[in-house]
Design a protein around this nucleic acid. Structure first.
Lengths: 117, 117
DNA sequence: TTGCTGCATAACCGTATGGTTATATAATAA
DNA sequence: TTATTATATAACCATACGGTTATGCAGCAA
C-alpha cells in the first residue's frame, strides 16, 4: 500500500521544494485539496496537454505529494500533503532562527538610522 | 476552473521555492543567518569551487533572498529573508486548507480501518 | 610599475524542466 | 470482435541546473 516512513530527509526536502517551485503544480495541489482528480480533469482547466499534466504529476509523486489510485481506466491523483510539513518545518526553523538574529538587528539599525538624521 | 486563490506574487514564489530546493543553498542561507559572508568564505566549508558559489548566490539574489554589499574587493552576501515569508504563507494557507479536509479524513479512515479488522 | 586577492564571467558538460505531438497500451463499452 | 476512453510513453525542442576549468578584471599592496 503506502509507505509510512515519513522520515524528514533532506533528500526529499529537495524534491518537495522543487515540486512547489512551479505555479501549475501548486495549482494542481490546490485543486487536489478539493478532492481527487483524474489526469484529464486536471488537464482541462489548466489549458495544458495531457502528457504535460502527467509529467507534473510524476514530479509531485516523486516528492511524495501525490499518490495515484486506480478506478477503472482512470488513475485519479490524490493529495498526500505530509511531505509539505517538512518544508514548513524547515522554514519555521529558519524563520525562528533568522528572526532572532536579523529581525532585531534590522529593527535596531532602523532605529539607529532614524535617530541619526 | 477555480483559481480563487491566495497567492500574492506567484512569480517570486517560484524563484523562492526553486532557490530552497537545493541543499547547498539552504546551507548557505543558514550560514548567512549567522552573519554576512564573502564568496570565498562560503566556498571553503562547502568544498566547492568559487564560481559554483557565485552561481548559487545568483539564484538566491534572483529570489530576493540575498543582497550583495561592497567592502573593498569583497562582495559579502547578506541574508534578506522576507521573501521566505511568502513561501511560509503559501504553505500555511495550504496546510490550513488541507488539514481541515484531508487530515481529518485520513484519521477517520484510519479509525475505520482499525475497527474493521 | 608589478603582482596578489576576490570575484565575475565564459565555455563546456551532463542532466533535468516544461512543453509539444505522435503513438502505444490497457481497460471499458458496444 | 471493434471502438472508445484514459493514461502512459517516446521523441523532440529549448532552456535551466549544478558543476567544472580557464580567464578577465577591479581593487588593493609592494
Amino acid at each position: 500500500m503506502q509507505q509510512l516512513n515519513q522520515t524528514p530527509q533532506p533528500e526529499n526536502l529537495d524534491a518537495v521544494f522543487a515540486a512547489l517551485a512551479d505555479p501549475t503544480r501548486r495549482a494542481i495541489l490546490t485543486r487536489l485539496a478539493n478532492g481527487d482528480a483524474s489526469v484529464n480533469e486536471l488537464a482541462e482547466p489548466f489549458c495544458m496537454s495531457q502528457p504535460a499534466v502527467s509529467k507534473h504529476l510524476k514530479v509531485l509523486e516523486r516528492a511524495g505529494l501525490v499518490e495515484r489510485a486506480i478506478d477503472k481506466q482512470r488513475r485519479p491523483a490524490r493529495l498526500k500533503a505530509e511531505p509539505m510539513r517538512e518544508a514548513v518545518k524547515w522554514l519555521e526553523e529558519f524563520s525562528k532562527f533568522w528572526s532572532s538574529s536579523f529581525d532585531q538587528l534590522d529593527d535596531l539599525l532602523e532605529e539607529l538610522k532614524k535617530s541619526e538624521s
